[in-house]
Design a binder for these strands. Sequence first.
DNA 1: AGAAGGCGGAGGAATTTTCTCCGCTTCTGG
DNA 2: CCAGAAGCGGAGAAAATTCCTCCGCCTTCT
Lengths: 215, 215
Amino acid sequence: MRADAERSRRRILDAACEVFLERGPDAPLDAVVRRAGVGPGTLYRRFPDREALVRELVTDLLARLTEAAEQARAAEPDPYLALRRFVHAAADLRMGAAIVVLLEHLVVDEELVAVRRGTVVAVEGLLRAAREAGRLRPGVGMGDLVLLCVRVSRPLPGALAALDADGSLVHRHLDLALAGLAGEPDGPPGRALGFDEVIAAAGRPGEPVPGRVTE
Amino acid sequence: MRADAERSRRRILDAACEVFLERGPDAPLDAVVRRAGVGPGTLYRRFPDREALVRELVTDLLARLTEAAEQARAAEPDPYLALRRFVHAAADLRMGAAIVVLLEHLVVDEELVAVRRGTVVAVEGLLRAAREAGRLRPGVGMGDLVLLCVRVSRPLPGALAALDADGSLVHRHLDLALAGLAGEPDGPPGRALGFDEVIAAAGRPGEPVPGRVTE
DNA sequence: AGAAGGCGGAGGAATTTTCTCCGCTTCTGG
DNA sequence: CCAGAAGCGGAGAAAATTCCTCCGCCTTCT
């Protein structure tokens, strides 16, 4: 594969990831094209239809997730810290997009099942280790973990997204979800976010609200 | 106002709330119309443009949020339980819609500022009480609370939404976020969610994925 | 340097979204 | 219960969006 083709492929997949997270699995492919900064022809040549794009995106993400889970396990002897590390890595990888998109526009074939199984096994290992070490609230299941990850690591809607341009808020809130808003004062992760900052984007009286960042 | 007009107004506002939460603040008003089960004429007569609808929706929601905060404070002597009760009530009221939509398509006028101030004061009271009682992790601010509420109580994307048709998962995850996934075994709220359930909606190999519920 | 292959964008067809108009139904005051 | 006022739903025109192809030019590899 030629170098420029590979570059385009990567840009399209990355853009698709963000766009599907922000606008849902039916987001127009034109939006992906604009975000990726490529021409429509480039997208439609490589991915004949939406499903082809989605399939490659999901496969790619699941593989990287599996790798992240295995790396986290290897790098952290403490099972809870390993799980925590994985959760943060999953957010960086935009795990949400994989799931959103997997469930919507995809015929799940055997190859996909195999890739998915690999991810599930790896993550379940992390979870079981943390549970057996007594570092996980009893009754918390794999589904809870995954859904909380999806919920917390999705981009904030609309103009709120600007609050977390660099993603640090996602990591703060992941830590909060892990440790609990109500919890022992063993140090809060990051710094407190003021409400004023949240509503700052709402503009002042009489002023038009600054719209979302136009693409 | 005639009884049927009031009924239509309520149905439209409720529908708009759900639709804006699910599809973002630019969701087509036709989707609101379909969800509300009224004719387009009915919507456009009462709300000449998108802003009119959004304005009434936001004002209505903020007022109900303020009321919920005051009720929670009155009903629960324990500051933490009061905060917890409010958070759950806010999720039921779809607080997320107010914020999503407030930030996007609205010129914030003085009336709105006043209503919003009322809400902020009421919620800050709850938060301060919980903090002073030592029931809140230090460093957790109003913004964290609001954003975690938005994140957790937004509907899950796409087909995942079906997992939480009755909203019980939102409440479970709000409790988890409050108490922390990693936490003392003082009883997990609700029952554990299996990963199998999460991916069940993905269909079996070779089968087309059941699409989202068509409206 | 030449050839193979990829790139971006113009643009047409199809779909979606917006919003109006009007005949029929529902409500309310008397 | 009735008459008139008010509201309702839907057909459908106009505008905007989205999908996707074709083609002339540019990049990459040998």
